[in-house]
Design a protein around this nucleic acid. Structure first.
Lengths: 348, 348
DNA sequence: ACGCTTATTGGAAGCGCTTCCAATGTGTCT
DNA sequence: AGACACATTGGAAGCGCTTCCAATAAGCGT
């Protein structure tokens, strides 16, 4: 096996460029007070040697690990491939690449008994400086507080409630998303609805229901106009719960789902009982995941820029870490959503 | 903001347990030659202090970063959520958690001009000790050689060809998978086929076509019995290429796809032109991704244990790094596959 | 009881980098 | 011209850990 020549160190660069180690360090970190001539010399030496800083050494000396952690909750056994989380991760990865940070992906199912400790240990053990929390962790105040207390910055992705008060956040206006979707259905003439909500604790998803209710209320429609059930965001929970919604005495003409996977499940169940979609029943999702375009007919849904959420989350975090953002209170960044009308909705 | 008390160091533990720093280090690393009494004392001190080793310091001093890199190719713009890669990643994550390693996820689209350098830089820059290559990187001999030359261990996931000769690997027998699927279709009486292959360079996916051909050949069927096209593994490429397959003069009665996403696309296109599946046309996929159960009717496909592939990949890698595996040549681990007959296949 | 090996412990050095602070040089103000 | 600010450089210390090697204690045969 070809033994690798030892990697060049900062001292090699210093020697080669005829300056002190500390000067090289300054150049590497874009520090001030370096003359152009010296800077050029150093940069040339770096290139000639193909020198790369050792992040471990830098972290040890400087106290900054440039390590972020992205925590998501989905249970691999149930949901091996949640679009929402994959896309968030991809966005985070992309931003990290651009910013020179690294992100440790951590999958901590809600079902784990010691899940909070698990996340906190990650910070301690790996020396992560920042935490990106996806739902439902983004609403876990105790966790956020604990992380903050350890000096770890945190950003919540799509927090639904009070989480906003503690940490920075990114998200869309889920309430408005639910409202917009309901408005569209009302416009089409629907007056009796089924609503398939998400897992308990996912506050942002619950806000979709609230927006839905608000739109109904504007038309003078109250709780007599809909029946709501809770699924777990999976396709299977959609197929499982669809019958209960469809057979309800209310006889809904439209089924509104808190995400696309469940909507796909509902759609499948509707097919199975021979319903013609959208003629017999309108179905809507949320997220605009790939599955929305894959099912037949393609799903009307609410688009949200999930990849961008992941990206902005990292950017917010890094802004805090570098001090670029020194706002005293938490900042929340709102991204746009939009109803995408495809072919599972029709006049009711 | 509550300033965090400084984290305890190994010296704190040493002081507290009344031994030397080096002894604590020995206990922490499970080293030999530590008396039970001392070991117990140290462990107690560690617990009382809630001490965690600093991985950066350990890495700097010991030269082992315990960092792995997982490289995947999908272009986020096209395929934000490939089941195959997500599942691989999840498996890798799980194994890393168990083994005390960390994995850096790296998305390097094939379209990047300097993709190989990108991957190698990752090793150098982040000091990764091991590389997990998913297709098509698992067949990139130049990349594998370069990584190996840098002293980085590598394991190829589902290599299709010569990659096996250089690095350790895990995978299923893709050739047999293609063969088995074809056998099933032949058994159902089909004699004219369309085959939707994957992207060029994905050698393991190509082997599925080889297996398919072998099964046909066994029945005396040659190239007159099928028409093959190349897609890019996406749903969209399935819908796009389906017409060409269906309208071919051969008039295939079964369409065999190299993965489930494309099969779902083909299915969708078949629906669009009013075909009744599987009565008018049989369609099969490969992978047994969630989408296989989501489309209507559910897809007949070849199951492969993708999560396990990711997990075993990490385990193989770590075995090399720790010396647990010191086989002179590369080892290849074969996992099981199985045809899963659902409802897109019927007698032809 | 003596020299020997073997188990257990600790001292010291140093991984590659950043931090703090002192040492120069250069220009400006009065 | 002298004092002073400022820009530019380097020396030294040390981040928290592991490695190498020396030191001591304990066990054993004869």
């Amino acid at each position: 096996m070809a033994l690798t020549a030892k990697k060049p160190t900062i001292d090699d660069v210093a020697r080669r460029s005829g300056v002190a180690r500390v000067t090289v360090s300054r150049v590497l970190n874009g520090g001030p007070n370096v003359s152009d001539a010296v800077r050029a010399k150093v940069i040339r030496a770096v290139e000639e040697l193909d020198y790369k800083v050792n992040p471990q050494a830098r972290s040890l000396a400087g106290g900054a690990s440039r390590l972020l952690a992205f925590v998501f909750a989905s249970d691999p056994e149930n949901e091996p491939n949640s679009y929402y989380e994959s896309a968030l991760e991809l966005g985070a990865l992309r931003a990290c690449l651009a910013l020179g940070y690294q992100v440790l992906i951590q999958n901590v199912p809600q079902s784990m008994p010691d899940r909070q400790k698990r996340v906190l240990d990650l910070i301690t053990t790996q020396r992560c400086e920042g935490l990106i929390l996806s739902p439902p962790y983004s609403d876990d105040i105790a966790l956020i507080d604990a992380a903050l207390a350890q000096g770890c910055r945190v950003v919540a992705v799509s927090p639904g409630g009070a989480g906003c008060g503690k940490a920075d956040g990114v998200g869309i206006d889920d309430e408005a998303g639910g409202y917009d979707m309901a408005r569209e259905l009302l416009r089409l003439g629907h007056r009796r609805f089924g609503f398939l909500a998400g897992l308990e604790g996912h506050l942002s998803a619950d806000r979709r229901l609230e927006g839905f209710k608000r739109a109904l209320a504007e038309q003078g429609l109250g709780s007599e106009a809909y029946v709501a059930l809770r699924g777990d965001f999976t396709f299977r929970s959609g197929t499982r719960l669809a019958p209960e919604l469809l057979d309800h005495s209310l006889r809904p003409t439209a089924l509104v789902c808190a995400n696309d996977d469940m909507a796909a499940g509902v759609l499948s169940a509707a097919h199975a009982r021979g319903l013609s979609i959208p003629a017999d029943l309108s179905i809507t999702g949320f997220d605009d995941a790939p599955v929305a375009g894959i099912v037949w007919p393609p799903l009307t849904t609410v688009h949200q820029p999930v990849k961008d959420l992941g990206q902005r989350a990292v950017e917010l975090l890094v802004a805090r870490l570098t001090g670029a953002n020194s706002a005293p209170g938490p900042v929340f960044e709102l991204l746009d959503h939009a109803v995408v009308s495809r072919q599972t909705t029709a006049p009711g």
